[in-house]
Amino acid sequence: MKAVIEKVAFELFLKHGPKRVTIDDIVAATPISRKHFYELYLNKEQLIKAMTGRFLLNARLEINEVAPKEGCPLVALIKVQYHFFQHIQKLSSSFIYEVRKYFPESVSDYDSFRQDLADSMTAFVENSREKGWIAEGVNIQRYVKLQLYCLEEILFGRLDLINHGSQDEIAGLGSDIIFNNTRGIVSREKIMVYDELISRLKKEYGNIN
């Protein structure tokens, strides 16, 4: 039953923002009573924390499943970013804004997830450097920070394309950041091999939407 409630609440929060949605709104959209709701959750904040935790757990599981299957750490790096972007597209800017403002416990869960992702990306880049994929002088930490910042900025920053941009625009910018920015750190000796790998990945994934 919790999974049903959290799914319904998630859809309502994305559409209207978590601040505006009431417990009565959630109860009305689910086959439970108000009393039953309070037997499962103390309040709306606990619901949001549980819902956010479920969303992030699913993202973690998918990302963790994909990366270890890759023999090439650079391909794993690309796939991790791709699946991260796929998941955060399911959110909305109003949801992100209101959760950050009114429900800080859920924000800390996202920040923890994001840090784990950054650590994984850093490890893949370092492994790629050891295997000769990365150009000399690349600042790995800066690359990782910029990648995550730029992917989030497309959806939740000043561009706010998730509300005002087309799916093609979102997919195009996401693709440029993931594939082209990563190409910029590849060593000259490996650039042609990288282009071949990315060509195959783009056929596999299609647009990032």
Rank of each mutant, 00 (worst) to 15 (best):
residue 91 L to D: 01
residue 106 S to R: 04
residue 82 Y to D: 05
residue 105 E to P: 02
residue 97 Y to W: 10
residue 117 L to M: 12
residue 82 Y to A: 12
residue 127 N to I: 00
residue 120 S to F: 09
residue 125 V to G: 06
residue 129 R to W: 03
residue 125 V to Y: 09
residue 123 A to S: 13
residue 128 S to P: 14
residue 122 T to L: 14
residue 128 S to C: 11
residue 92 S to A: 07
residue 80 V to Q: 09
residue 102 Y to S: 07
residue 123 A to L: 12
residue 121 M to F: 02
residue 111 D to T: 09
residue 111 D to V: 10
residue 94 S to G: 09
residue 118 A to Y: 08
residue 118 A to E: 14
residue 107 V to M: 09
residue 104 P to Q: 11
residue 125 V to C: 12
residue 96 I to F: 08
residue 91 L to F: 09
residue 98 E to W: 03
residue 88 I to F: 06
residue 118 A to V: 10
residue 87 H to W: 11
residue 85 F to H: 13
residue 109 D to M: 14
residue 80 V to F: 01
residue 87 H to E: 03
residue 102 Y to C: 02
residue 84 F to I: 06
residue 89 Q to F: 07
residue 126 E to L: 13
residue 113 F to C: 06
residue 100 R to N: 11
residue 99 V to E: 00
residue 98 E to M: 04
residue 118 A to S: 14
residue 95 F to Q: 00
residue 124 F to C: 03
residue 89 Q to E: 11
residue 105 E to F: 04
residue 94 S to Q: 15
residue 88 I to P: 05
residue 88 I to A: 03
residue 104 P to M: 08
residue 120 S to M: 15
residue 105 E to V: 11
residue 90 K to W: 05
residue 116 D to I: 06
residue 115 Q to E: 09
residue 89 Q to M: 15
residue 86 Q to D: 09
residue 95 F to R: 01
residue 122 T to I: 13
residue 103 F to E: 01
residue 116 D to M: 11
residue 84 F to N: 12
residue 121 M to E: 07
residue 105 E to R: 11
residue 102 Y to F: 14
residue 125 V to W: 06
residue 124 F to H: 14
residue 106 S to N: 05
residue 80 V to I: 13
residue 86 Q to E: 14
residue 87 H to D: 02
residue 84 F to W: 13
residue 90 K to Y: 05
residue 129 R to Y: 06
residue 106 S to Y: 02
residue 93 S to D: 03
residue 111 D to R: 15
residue 112 S to G: 12
residue 82 Y to S: 06
residue 86 Q to H: 13
residue 100 R to C: 03
residue 126 E to P: 06
residue 102 Y to A: 02
residue 91 L to G: 02
residue 91 L to V: 02
residue 101 K to L: 09
residue 101 K to D: 03
residue 109 D to A: 12
residue 111 D to E: 13
residue 111 D to P: 00
residue 120 S to L: 15
residue 82 Y to N: 10
residue 113 F to S: 05
residue 113 F to N: 04
residue 89 Q to Y: 10
residue 86 Q to K: 15
residue 121 M to W: 01
residue 126 E to G: 05
residue 127 N to R: 14
residue 128 S to A: 15
residue 94 S to D: 10
residue 120 S to Y: 09
residue 118 A to G: 12
residue 115 Q to R: 14
residue 108 S to G: 01
residue 98 E to T: 04
residue 123 A to G: 08
